[in-house]
Amino acid sequence: MTDPTIGRLRVSGATLHYEVRGRGPLLLLIPGGTGGAASFDGIADELAATYTVAAYDPRGLSRSPLDDPGAEQRVAEHAEDAFRLLELLSPGEPARVFGSSSGAIAALHLLTAHPERVERVVAHEPPVVEVLPDTSEHRALIARVQETFRTQGLMPAMAVFAAGLKKDDDTAEPAPAPELPPEAAARAEQTLAGLPFFISRIVPAFMSYVPDLDRLASLSDRLVLACGQDSRGELPYRPAALMAERFGTELRHFPGGHVGLNTHSVGFGEALKKALLA
């Protein structure tokens, strides 16, 4: 794997760690969950053959500390961080952007707020549950997760959260976790360290976000909505499927499920390259 060029960018209330590889037009990668720039290690080199690939740790996670560790998180602020990176790394030139999960929510807001800076956005399973007809159930889930975290702690809260993401009719015992490539398994410690911030700050802020569907529809020629081929029926799959149907656009399917980036990195990278050119 090629060693990236490392940078630090001061933004409002935080300092962002970012990494750059390759040459060509800019491709900004926005991670989801507790992932940082390292979550793209499995695909970054392949993409860097075509693009200048930039990835970063979102504010509050890993190597991007907040000035105020207790600061509330907002989707608009995270999207503005991405915009600042575009301004730094691709001044005056529209860029391509990929985001997964919560990172895909930030990418959607970036597209609506700064469309002139974005040539194409690929959004993989953005859990914008406010667009769903049963959104009240998901608001209740988020409230249960927060209450469980407050009263019982991290792992019980994560269990409630994970159960709420499953298929509505899925009552089976959970399948064994897929075996991760060594580089993904090595990030487990970082993932665990970021979970309290994720469950208490990112989940409530991002899953209560209401996207501007009319504006996204008007920009849908620059938007590729994607889901994991193994995710059908799960909560993170449904908003992208609904938006693709509403916008009259194709819903792309990438290998694996919600975390296919980690479990099926080679196929995921190939699918992403095709989506960026669509």
Rank of each mutant, 00 (worst) to 15 (best):
F40R: 06
V20M: 07
H138S: 09
L251K: 12
V121G: 03
P178V: 09
G99E: 03
H78C: 10
A14Y: 08
F247I: 10
V266D: 14
G228D: 10
G24N: 10
L111W: 12
P65M: 12
V203R: 02
L141S: 13
G99T: 09
R201M: 09
A106V: 07
E189P: 00
E125V: 04
D230T: 00
A172K: 11
H109S: 12
L242A: 15
R215H: 05
A217E: 14
A186S: 14
T50I: 05
V259W: 05
G13M: 07
Y237M: 06
E116I: 04
L132G: 12
L154G: 12
E80L: 09
A271Q: 04
E119I: 00
T191L: 09
H264C: 12
P31Y: 08
D169Q: 02
A79P: 03
A37F: 01
D57I: 03
L154Q: 04
P25R: 12
T249P: 03
T2C: 01
S39H: 06
L89V: 05
G194C: 08
A54Y: 09
I6E: 15
E87I: 01
L272I: 08
R8S: 12
A157G: 08
E250S: 08
L195N: 03
F206D: 13
G42K: 04
H124T: 01
R117V: 03
A241Q: 08
A177F: 07
P181S: 05
A71V: 05
E183G: 02
A123G: 10
D45S: 11
V122T: 04
V128M: 12
F40N: 01
T2N: 14
P133C: 13
F98L: 08
Q152P: 00
V122F: 10
M158L: 15
E116Y: 01
M243D: 02
D221N: 13
S64H: 06
S12D: 15
T15W: 00
D67Y: 05
K273R: 15
A157N: 05
A185D: 07
H78D: 07
G70N: 13
L216D: 05
V160D: 07
M207V: 07
D221M: 01
P174K: 13
A14G: 08
T52E: 06
R117W: 10
G92R: 04
V121Q: 07
P115D: 09
G103N: 09
A95W: 01
S90I: 02
V53H: 08
V75A: 08
D57M: 08
R74N: 11
A226W: 00
R238T: 05
L88W: 02
L61A: 06
V121K: 03
G33H: 03
S39L: 08
V210W: 02
E234G: 02
T52P: 02
V118G: 02
V128L: 10
L213A: 14
R74G: 12
G35K: 05
P25N: 10
P211F: 14
S136V: 13
G228E: 06
A44C: 08
L108Y: 09
G60F: 03
V122H: 09
